[in-house]
Amino acid sequence: MNMPRPYRMRARAESAQHTKRRILEAAQGLLRERLSMDVRLEDVAERAGVAVQTVLRHFGTRELLLRDALAGEQARTTAQRAAAPGDIDASIAALVDHYEEVGDLVVRRLAEEDRDPELARRLTMGREEHRRWVHRQFGPQLDDRLVDALVVVCDVYAWKLLRRDLGRGRGDVETVMRRTVRSLLRPD
């Protein structure tokens, strides 16, 4: 009987995992550039260097691929915005790092959320995560009105207003956000 050798099976499994990772990274890259409704399987396959059938074999459907890709992007965002709770300087620096990378894309997505129900759902999740981030970074003892104010100060639209509309440099954006957060957190 002709049995496959274990090292060949392991090599095949590793190759399959590598291919799946490439496909997922291709989808994530496209999601950073486009709305999810504009990401086609053909584009993902081309970017990953595989056939559409290979994409479907690994993920089943376009929806499942995008679900996994968006989950990966959310995990990336969470890691990117990580800082020690209570450390205002590090929190704002991490937040501005994130906005420098994806802020323009997020603003475009926010402007188009009424066109795509899945995008609207994802943006709602993003807003909820942003509020949790504010709670985590600036203290769980905050009352709702103060949390609302901190959410606004740390929002992508605040970054856009300062960075894009007013033309401020990155350092100025961080300074304005830090000062505003500190003034809001100061006890009366």
Rank of each mutant, 00 (worst) to 15 (best):
N2T: 14
P4D: 11
R5W: 13
Y7I: 15
A11W: 12
R12N: 12
S15K: 15
Q17K: 14
Q17A: 15
L24G: 03
L24N: 03
E25V: 14
A26T: 05
Q28G: 03
L30D: 02
S36I: 00
R40F: 01
D43T: 00
V44R: 04
V44C: 07
A45E: 02
A48I: 00
G49Y: 07
G49D: 04
A51G: 09
T54L: 08
R57M: 10
R57V: 12
H58N: 10
E63K: 07
L65I: 06
L65S: 06
L66D: 01
L70P: 02
A71M: 04
A71R: 10
E73Q: 15
Q74E: 13
Q74M: 13
A75W: 09
T77H: 12
T77S: 15
T78C: 06
A79M: 10
A83L: 11
A83T: 06
D89K: 12
S91K: 06
D97Q: 04
V102T: 10
G103E: 02
V106L: 14
V106Q: 08
V107C: 12
E112F: 01
E112D: 04
E113N: 13
D114I: 10
L119C: 07
L123I: 05
M125T: 14
G126I: 05
R127T: 08
H130D: 01
H130W: 00
W133C: 03
H135P: 01
Q141L: 09
D148T: 04
A149D: 10
L150T: 03
V151G: 13
V153L: 10
C154S: 14
C154P: 04
L162I: 02
G167I: 01
R168I: 01
R168D: 00
G169Y: 09
R170G: 10
R170E: 08
M177N: 04
M177W: 01
R178K: 11
R179F: 05
T180Q: 06
V181A: 05
L185P: 02
R186H: 12
R186M: 12
